[in-house]
Simulated scan of single mutants.
Amino acid sequence: MGGGKSLAALVRHHHVGARGLNGMLIVMQPRESGVVASRLGVSAPADVIDDQTDLWDMISRAVAEDGVRHVVADEAHFFTPTQIEQLARVADDLDVVVEAFGLLTDFRTRLFPASARLVELADRLVALPTGPLCACGEFATLNARLIDGVMVTDGDQVMVGDVTGDRVRYEPVCRACHVAVHSSGVRDRGIELPG
């Protein structure tokens, strides 16, 4: 969505290492190369997990074997609710700092299941100050899925967007533009969708 989530996760992971702490950076598939990368060009290697990964087991082993004291989870909205519960257990039972970065809602404005569980269990929720702007100039709080340049509001919750193409992509939008496009099919605030 361009909101700076991955950049913030990378900055936090860097700060952990700069303080001499052993940290762990994790991300959900489909990160093919095992890297968390920001659109600004900053990247770092990460442990890639899938929806079957037992985070309690993985992180508790890393704590025992490698002295991990801090976990940064990127794309946390793609985790399972059970994995969010495992992260909470890591924080509570292993005294490891856990920070999760992700979206709250999908392109339909519905909470991701993992995000809902994260909201229920988190000690703190922090909105990033680097939030993106909608094309109309307002702060974007939602993301729109575009298929061939047309905004859609139905479909599978997860559909990975193209990185270089534009067949499927996501655009940050404010709530008013999302509602305007959803109800009319066209943006009425002086903004045109490409395509």
Rank of each mutant, 00 (worst) to 15 (best):
D57N: 09
V68P: 01
D162P: 01
T109C: 09
Q29M: 07
M1G: 15
G17Y: 12
Y170E: 02
V173S: 00
D148P: 07
E138L: 09
G149Q: 08
C136V: 05
M151F: 06
G190Q: 11
V179G: 02
I59N: 03
V158L: 15
M24W: 02
R12T: 14
H77V: 05
A62K: 14
E192R: 11
L125D: 03
G41F: 07
W56L: 10
V35H: 04
V71T: 05
F112K: 01
S184T: 15
S115N: 13
I49E: 03
L103K: 04
L111A: 12
V168R: 05
P81K: 01
R189N: 15
H15T: 12
V48Q: 03
V48E: 03
T80D: 05
V42I: 14
V173N: 00
V152Y: 02
E85Q: 13
V36Q: 10
I147A: 00
Q52C: 04
G161R: 11
A18P: 00
T153D: 13
N22D: 06
R187L: 13
A180N: 10
A46I: 13
E75V: 03
H14V: 04
G2S: 06
A180H: 02
A176R: 14
L40F: 10
A116K: 13
G137M: 09
M28L: 09
E32A: 13
S184P: 02
N22V: 15
G161H: 07
H70W: 13
F79T: 09
D156G: 12
E171W: 08
D54W: 09
V71A: 05
R169C: 06
L25G: 03
F79N: 03
R31H: 15
C136A: 07
L21W: 10
P30M: 08
D51K: 14
I26A: 04
E85V: 01
G23Q: 04
S115P: 13
V16G: 02
D106P: 04
G4Y: 06
V63W: 13
F79L: 15
A9E: 06
V98E: 01
L193I: 11
V90N: 03
H15W: 09
R110H: 13
W56Q: 05
